[in-house]
Structure formats: C-alpha cells, structure tokens
Design a protein around this nucleic acid. Structure first.
Lengths: 206, 206
DNA sequence: TGCAACATAATTGGCGCCAATTATACCGCC
DNA sequence: GGCGGTATAATTGGCGCCAATTATGTTGCA
C-alpha cells in the first residue's frame, strides 16, 4: 500500500529526522533507491525532499554523484556556534520578560521527562523531548523569525565531527543544563541565563 | 537557441533578482508558463527554482494554485527587522576589528559609485552596487554563516508593504548612510557604527 | 603481481506527458 | 438585469522513462 497524500511535503522532515537520528552519518551518501523503499515514496518525492534539504544545508549535493549528509569542517562548525550564541543569547532578554508560570510548569515537565528518557528511553524519545523543550523555551521570545533561525542553525549543527549524543555523559549534562536554565529563568536572572546558554553552546553544540 | 547548462541552478537566483527588482510585486502570482518563456527555461527547471525560493521564504506556495511573491504582514516584518538588528549589530564588533585600508578603499569606491548611480543610473545598477557594498562590508566579519543569514534576511525584507526603493529620497538617504558607515568604520567607532546600522534597519529596512 | 584499459552494472538526473484542479466565460433561469 | 450553475479553457503538479554519468568488475599485458 502506498497511502500517502499529506506526507508529500513531510518527507524532507522525515529524512532530516533520520539524519538527525544518525541513521545516516555525516559524509554518507544517500541513495535515492534506498530512500524510495525506506520511506515508501516515489523517486520524484525523494528528489524534491533531497533538494529541499540541500537548500537548507542539511545535506550536500554533488552533480552526477548524488546527495550526502553534510560534513562540517571545524571552521564552519565554529562559525555556526558563534552565530548560535549571538541569536540565542539575544533571545534571552525577551524570554525572561515574557515568561509566565504556565510555561515554567511546562518546561519543568519536559525537563523531568527528558531526565527519565535519559535513563530509560530510546534515542528517539530523548531527541524528541529535548527538541520540544527547546522549542517551548525559544518560542517564548515572541519573534518567530528569530526562533526559526535558531532552529535552522541547531539542525545544521548535527553534521559536526564532534558526536554530541554518543556518550551518556553528555545526555546527563544536557539534563543538568535544562534544570539550571529553568532555575535561572524562574528568578529572572537574565545575565545568568545568558551565560548558561553561551557556555552550553560553546561546550559541544547542543 | 537554448544554450543552458550552468544556468540550471542559477535560475532561482535570476527569479529572485527579478522579484527583488519588483518585476513581480508582493502577492503577485508567478505563472510557470510565463517564467519558462521569460527565462527560456524548461518547466522542470522553473519548478525547481520556485521550490527553492519557497524554501527560502522568498515566495509562497499554495497547492493547486501556484507560487506567489511573499507578502509580509507588519508583524513578520517587525520580527525580521528585529532579527536583522541582532545579527548585523553583532557583526559590527568583528568588522571593526578586521577592517583594513584596502577594504575601506573598496567601500569608498562602491559608495561613490552608488552615489553616482542614484542620480544617473538604472534601477538595477543601484541595487547591484548597493548589494556589493553590503556584501563587502559584512564579509569583513569573518563568519560566513553569520554573513549568509544576514543576506538571507535582507532578501526576505523585500516583500514588505513599505516600498523601500520607490522614492528618490530614500536612495539619497542610503547614500548618506553608506558614507556615515565608512566614516565610523575608519575611526573604529564601534558604538557609533552599531547605532547607525540599527537605526538604518529600523527606519525602513534597507 | 600490479596496473591500465575496457566492458558491464548501478545510479543519477533531465524532461515531457497527461490527469487533477482551479479559473473563466457563457447561458439559461428566476 | 442579476445570479447560479454548467461547460470550457488555462494552469498546476504527479510521475516514469531513458539517456548521461559514474562506479565496479574483469581481462590482458608488462
């Protein structure tokens, strides 16, 4: 069965998710035939999705060779992190100003769920909850364009040479960071939150 | 004759340029057949280019209706300007630090050419020189990713309701801004340059 | 045994056709 | 004369085929 209609434009997202999940590692070639079968899509859909991801710099296109997962050199990786610091710290001021009890509660819940997922969840659950946490956090800034750019850079960070999710240690670190961020946010410690986020990014990129 | 081979991927850029030149106004539908003839391209190429521009948010895609030039509501426009201020002012510090005599000279030359084009040049010349000026300026920041994001937001600003290039007055203002920017850069007045750029963006968006 | 050139297999990518959908024009009806 | 419904025209968009290109395997030669 090939019951797809709405999935048409979502395929790019699915492939991006797979890359994010390290199903395809940086530098690896993405063969169109494999993707057709894996995602049960037509060749045309696969190509569209690949083109979109290439525009977003998630993957790289080499004429007559195909598409491969982007591999960031250290220079570009540094540039991305610097830009992320600029954007994410700039968002902090607005986030602190717009914060409310309901959102704090939601963040706390997500942080707790992340903590649980770290010890007893799948790779995908961890990533999904983590994404949700950061989404709720940054949507607080009240600037959809800024939020979108933060998200886009976050995606591009995946192709780094430094494997972020590989060790259990970094997951625990992320868990601690989440809690620290909420604490700073609760007492409206703008400077502290800024410092926290900056070091979080510089440290390893997530 | 349809001697095209390299243009394949450049078509999106050409269409973007045409939109930038106001050949197609915000909200206007881009008919694929027209574009085929106008740019002497195949239907497939046109569609690829339109898809790319849609991903970049330069145009908007409506299923079964087609593609139209993005029309920014005031809220989004405000969000873009705010984000531009964040990015472009953040770049200033690095730009001042990396500035050198040769670049200053190049900027002066471009500013002069822009001034000349304002009084006696075509619409396209003005835009091209202006783009070159800003490109040289921001490439100084030494962060390709940051530069690329600045450029991308600058592109998206085009679809604003406020027509930037319409009046001769705003062109003269841009000319004055260029000169003021160079002056501030020359004496390494970081704070002044930051203020200049911020007000430049807030004012009308270019 | 190593290497180069050729043959073969696998993969990408250009392109056009036609169905599905939407806009337009026409005509009859109220 | 206005309005609703239908026929027609225009436009978009899904999809597959096959040529062009690149990778792989093999054979002959030094």
């Amino acid at each position: 069965m090939k019951a797809r209609r709405k999935e048409k434009r979502a395929l790019a997202g699915e492939i991006a998710e797979a890359i994010h999940m390290r199903a395809y590692r940086p530098g690896e070639w993405l063969r169109q035939i494999d993707l057709e079968e894996k995602f049960n899509a037509t060749r045309f859909d696969v190509r569209s999705a690949l083109d979109e991801l290439a525009v977003r710099k998630t993957i790289e296109h080499v004429p007559n060779r195909g598409y491969r997962v982007a591999q960031l050199d250290t220079e570009t990786y540094r540039a991305i992190r610097e830009t992320r610091v600029i954007l994410e710290t700039a968002a902090v001021a607005e986030i602190v100003a717009r914060m409310d009890e309901a959102t704090i509660a939601k963040l706390k819940e997500l942080a707790a769920r992340f903590g649980a997922a770290v010890s007893a969840g799948t790779h995908m659950e961890q990533s999904q909850i983590n994404g949700e946490f950061h989404h709720v956090f940054y949507s607080l800034c009240g600037n959809p364009v800024l939020e979108e750019m933060i998200w886009s850079l976050r995606d591009r960070s995946r192709g780094s040479a430094v494997t972020v999710w590989s060790s259990h240690e970094s997951l625990l670190q992320s868990d601690r960071d989440h809690i620290a961020m909420i604490a700073a946010l609760e007492v409206r410690d703008t400077a502290g939150l800024t410092r926290l986020i900056a070091s979080h990014i510089i440290k390893d990129g997530l």
